[in-house]
Design a protein around this nucleic acid. Structure first.
Lengths: 129, 129
DNA sequence: CAATAATGTTAGGCTAAACAAACTTTTAAG
DNA sequence: CTTAAAAGTTTGTTTAGCCTAACATTATTG
């Protein structure tokens, strides 16, 4: 049923969410810049996301998350944030390295591990609501 | 100089180390079983590892780590073990999920994060020397 | 020691993901 | 409005990693 999102596709989806929070509509060029890939790579990824029903796009136009796409993206971003928080606030890893590592690790983490990590963070850093 | 090992190649290298500890010599078939891939995939990976000077192999024969290959493999396995220990002993993730997650995350972790994780584990679990 | 089983390799093909170059469409300026 | 720049797409390659089927080599065993 759910073809499982690849790490690459998850990165695109997350980038689209972040950019949409900053700018509203999301342009192919901005996604390319954010992920440091060429525009045709974005076009290809967006087409895949369209087929999966996770984004919509008018021809030659802006990209928008569908409700389902937003749900997925939010889940991915939560993983990213939890990992980054753990790396910076618990381990004391520097911001930029933490963000890079989180971005790579976020695709690997299972639901069980995610759940346990959130519990751990709540317990350890009650400051974060 | 160092072409950077891909996640896939790191998995092969680690598997070869683990199998060599258990059986001495390492057979293509055993690598295939361990990683759940077809034998030709192993042949291809082993060829890549040979080109990189990380393993040796006699035609149609066993695979051996070179000193450099062993070094790399040990470093990879250390990452894996540290991650698994963190997942099981700190977060309380179940053994098999922890192992699977560790196997995927181990390729993403930077030297800085690795170092900080080891410090954290020492502090938290002094039992493990 | 021959025949068969197990092991390893080659050949050929597929998919995902990236790129550059060239093209189309939209936007913005004059 | 027309044209130049910017944005987006198409086309055609490339690379890594995997697969199956067929073939070659080595090991086993009757």
């Amino acid at each position: 049923m759910h073809p499982e999102l690849s790490a690459s596709i998850e990165d695109y989806l997350e980038a689209i969410l972040v950019l949409s929070e900053a700018h509203g509509a999301v342009r192919v060029t901005d996604i390319a810049k954010k992920l440091d890939v060429a525009k045709p790579s974005v076009t290809a990824a967006v087409n895949t996301l369209k087929e999966m029903g996770l984004v919509t796009q008018e021809r030659y136009g802006k990209v928008y998350l569908t409700p389902s796409g937003r749900e997925h993206a939010v889940r991915i971003k939560r993983r990213h944030n939890a990992l980054r928080a753990f790396l910076t606030e618990v381990l004391g890893v520097s911001e930029d390295v933490a963000d890079k590592d989180a971005c790579l690790m976020e695709h690997a983490i299972s639901p069980e591990t995610m759940e346990k990590l959130l519990l751990f963070l709540e317990k350890t850093l009650p400051s974060n609501k």
